[in-house]
Design a protein around this nucleic acid. Structure first.
Lengths: 154, 154
DNA sequence: TGGCAAGTGGGGAAATGTGGGGGAAGGTGG
DNA sequence: CCACCTTCCCCCACATTTCCCCACTTGCCA
């Protein structure tokens, strides 16, 4: 809900299982809608993650990211590759009156979304996963391994 | 939509699959037209990118680039090579009333465009890709590698 | 068990992309 | 200078997608 000390406060937590209907629509979990302030004209930006899922930002948070990217050296080839990916896949849209978004076919296909999907809250953003892929990417074993390497950070 | 703090605000995002018709015309995605302000007398400048795709700027943004190039040391051989490429391939044109542009045959051939093409939004410009080439240039594996190297930038 | 809240499904209007015919404009060769 | 040809652009018509609205089901709580 707006800024606080220069940082966005919308915080997403938890996991929710929802379904994609035949038109490619998915209902955003009510908790997440609340976290964004429950406003009427609520817009989201959705893009892909290299891990194989979708990432969703409230539009203001995404615009902030874009602003930062614009200030970087535009000739850098690695940056161009990165932006072709992040920005090139981005899709913005609003919610319908039932709180659903339409996931465009390319994104749906990229993330392997059909029938059932998991919403995963991730602080200032959230992700949408195919169930199987989610299991592969975030099993306890994998996390145990990763935790070791993180110990220096916090 | 116009200037803001000396910087153009037209921001393109997302990817759209369109087709090139038998006359060499391609429809610009409606989202991109909106981003440029939906004006009537809307002009674009199209050129090539070393990666093998086309790059398209709204004319004002392109003019701005040309202005910067003129201020650089004209004796520099590397700059000359670069400009022969960017400026030498450039083609300006307007949209027809259906929002389509005509891609000149040399550019079409350079980028390998036929039948289906992808539009990729890239902040202040957008690109037009042959589908296969796009996959090669921005697959998830490549992006993961690149992200590592970029971590110093942001 | 009634009522509300949340998620699901589907119909219909509007917006968007696609394809093709015909006329104007511009370049080329006689 | 004129006739021809090509290229480009404007128009209309069609198919598909997207978005907006209303109604149903399910689960939770009083």
């Amino acid at each position: 809900m707006g800024k606080c000390g220069g940082r966005w406060m919308t915080l997403f937590r938890g996991r929710f299982l929802h379904s994609v209907d035949s038109k490619g629509r998915v209902a955003i979990p009510q908790r997440f809608r609340e976290a964004m302030g429950g406003e009427e004209d609520l817009r989201l930006v959705m893009t892909v993650d290299p891990e194989g899922c979708l990432v969703v930002y409230p539009e203001p948070a995404w615009v902030e990211l874009e602003r930062k990217w614009q200030e970087l050296p535009q000739m850098n080839e690695d940056l161009k590759t990165y932006l072709r990916f992040m920005v090139g896949w981005a899709s913005d849209g609003g919610l319908d009156r039932q709180g659903r978004i339409l996931v465009p076919p390319p994104l749906r296909e990229y993330a392997g979304l059909e029938h059932e999907v998991w919403f995963i809250g991730l602080l200032h953003k959230f992700e949408i996963w195919n169930g199987e892929r989610l299991g592969m990417a975030t099993g306890p074993e994998k996390v145990r391994a990763v935790t070791q390497k993180l110990s220096g950070l916090f």
